[in-house]
């Protein structure tokens, strides 16, 4: 009979390739970032000695704070919109679709083209002479093309919500699919109409999927760089754009590193608070 030590060493053996990749590709660069953020730029190299100046600059400057705030706000809006739109779709596939597999494949079709192409597609749809504007002009609903569609936070939210839709649909679908159908029948049997049944059984039991979807979207979109750069304009610029500028144009690596780490910390704290409050809400609902 294998003892515990043996099976745990076997476990680590199986994990080894992943651990190596994680160590080399994640932990080491992260450590490097931390070290870089504690330096000061001096010409093409770093000045001697360690300093917390970069963090002072990150937290002290109002324009940086605005960018952090805006990134979180846009990302929160994207999360809200995506989850709200994904839920009915996931619900449809889980409860009403006949050919689930085909639907699930169809939902991933947008991902068969590159992310960049999809962002450009939205640029064409939302642009000044784009699909929406020319259609509205043709219908004589407007005289002048609408300028409010592109190069603002709205465009960023629309584009990101579309880009991340499948990441919200799939976890919600899985949690809905997992719900034992006899629980729904039991709720009906005990007097619930469709709406009450949804609110008392389906929604609470699908919350793990909803929370998973929210985290899955909020975390990466806060740091999204391509979408705000292409469709965000000056009003839609997010923190990742500033970080890119520090590394590529300005050449202030320590400041870029500090901005990245602070942004990571903010996301971690918000995600943590979100999870904790979701858990507390689930407990209170019992």
């Amino acid at each position: 009979m294998p003892n515990k030590g043996q099976s745990s060493s076997e476990g680590y053996g199986l994990l080894a390739p992943t651990l190596v990749v994680m160590g080399v590709a994640l932990a080491a660069p992260l450590l490097l970032m931390v070290l870089t953020s504690l330096q000061a730029q001096s010409g093409p190299g770093f000045a001697a000695g360690w300093t917390l100046d970069q963090y002072g600059a990150v937290l002290g400057r109002a324009s940086y704070r605005l960018l952090f705030l805006r990134s979180v706000a846009i990302s929160a809006a994207v999360t809200l919109v995506t989850v709200a739109l994904a839920y009915p779709m996931a619900y449809f596939v889980a409860f009403h679709a006949k050919h689930k597999f085909i639907w699930l494949v169809a939902l991933t079709i947008p991902f068969w083209t590159s992310y960049l192409l999809r962002v450009f597609a939205w640029k064409i749809i939302l642009g000044y002479g784009g699909v929406i504007n020319s259609a509205l002009m043709r219908l004589h609903l407007i005289d002048q093309p609408l300028g409010v569609l592109l190069y603002n936070p709205f465009a960023v939210v629309v584009t990101l919500a579309h880009a991340w839709a499948a990441f919200a649909i799939l976890p919600i679908y899985v949690s809905l699919e997992k719900i034992d159908r006899s629980l729904l029948e039991a709720a009906s049997d005990l007097g619930d109409g469709p709406l009450r049944r949804f609110l008392r059984i389906t929604l609470p039991l699908s919350m793990p999927g909803v929370i998973g979807a929210a985290i899955l979207i909020f975390v990466p979109t806060t740091g999204d760089y391509v979408t705000p750069a292409l469709v965000g304009g000056t009003q839609g610029t997010m923190i990742a754009n500033l970080i890119e500028v520090q590394f590529n144009s300005v050449g202030n690596w320590p400041l870029g590193a500090a901005l990245s780490l602070v942004s990571m910390a903010i996301v971690a704290v918000i995600a943590g608070l979100f999870l904790a409050s979701a858990r507390a809400a689930a407990k209170a609902a019992r």
């Binding site: 006899s182 029948e185 039991a186 109409g193 049944r197 059984i201 609902a285 019992r286």
Partner: peptide, 29 residues
């Protein structure tokens, strides 16, 4: 519809609501 019928059912799988405790399961209806 089932929710308006004067019947109640004990399901083969019991269909106990997993997110509710015993009291709330029984009080559900």
């Amino acid at each position: 519809p089932p929710n308006l019928r004067p019947t109640n059912m004990v399901f083969q799988s019991y269909a106990i609501f997993p997110h509710l405790n015993v009291f709330d399961n029984i009080a559900y209806g």
